[in-house]
Amino acid sequence: MTATSHLRIHQFAGLTPGPRLLVTGAVHGNEVHGTQAMTEIIRQLDAGELTLLRGTLTCVPIVNPLAHQLGRREGDRNLNRNLRPPVIAQDYEDRIARVLCPLIAQHDGILDLHSFQGNGPAFAMIGPRNNTGELEPFSQEATESALAAQLGVGRIVEGWLSTYALGLKRRQQREHDGSRRASLISDPHYGVGTTEYMRSTGGWAITLECGQHLDPNGPSVARLAILRTLVFLGMLDESAVEPHRPSQPPEMLQLYDVIDREDMGDQFAREWASFDPVEKGQTIGTRASGEAVLAPSEGRIVFPNVKSQPGTEWFYLARPSDRQLG
């Protein structure tokens, strides 16, 4: 049996009932800040340096063992897109989903720890406002907002799935070669990952982007977020971590558009970092055809990815949000 044939799941069941928290890392195999943070927290719980007061804490430090072993984002495909229990498993990530989706559904909430390709500070991503719509009906806005404000990051982003749905509509209008990859990236379900799946089961979910992949501070950001989440849920004593008292409220941003790379010849106009400001009409990049890609309005660029493949996300655009964290 190899390390890619199973998921290693660490669970701590408190002797007093309470919330059921799932913490995940390395959903993308080369994003390991959460993996390192969980390794230390697991050690501290085992050593009695931390005490679980109530509830159940489940840690999965490496959610995608194949991608992790290969030192890259994906094994056969992107696990954090089109996440659902497959009827027939067609690839490695489908086999993970058969285990991961029921595990997610057993919990009340998930803290999913990631990092990103470009430079930039850590930030959190939260779900939609409470709604009864078809795309992502939701009723846990208050919990996500309050918890996100405690994580210690200076920026919080909303609007993922609605923005992704907009990009998918454009993607579906383009011809594709009929391959499984092309079918997946144009599937209406493709924007659904760990957090969206958790919300579909009635739970709450937060994605924490802990910084650039190699940021030496990333594991500390992840560890502090896990501890503060446990304190927020009453699962850990407040003395275990310094309380978060921000000097100013986090900046709230709303994603509103996603632009795909169409050709490997598409190039950015400069080296962008997440949350760099853009002015209306500013050139963000140039298509292989020579066509300029212009910012439609004033705002920020998010997740600029020089390594993106044709037909997948090249960058996102965000603008200020009026959301109140409470």
Rank of each mutant, 00 (worst) to 15 (best):
G203H: 07
G218Y: 15
C210G: 08
I226K: 13
P188A: 04
R181P: 05
F232M: 00
F232W: 12
T229C: 15
G193V: 03
L184H: 13
F232G: 00
L208P: 08
S200A: 15
F232S: 04
G193K: 14
I206E: 08
L230N: 08
I226Y: 14
T229E: 05
G178F: 08
S179F: 13
L236Y: 14
R228H: 12
R181D: 06
S186D: 01
G234E: 03
G202P: 09
F232Q: 04
V192H: 15
R228M: 06
Y197E: 14
M198W: 12
T201Y: 10
V231C: 13
L208E: 14
P216D: 05
A182H: 10
H189L: 05
P219G: 01
L224K: 08
R228I: 05
A205D: 05
Q212P: 00
C210M: 08
E238S: 12
S186C: 13
V221A: 04
T207M: 12
V192A: 07
G234A: 02
I185P: 00
G211Q: 10
S200T: 07
D187A: 07
T201W: 15
A182L: 01
S186F: 08
D237E: 12
T194E: 09
D215A: 07
S186V: 02
A222N: 10
T194W: 14
G202K: 12
N217T: 00
S200W: 10
R223Y: 04
G203C: 05
L208I: 09
L224V: 01
T207P: 03
G191A: 12
R228P: 03
G203N: 08
R181W: 15
I206Y: 15
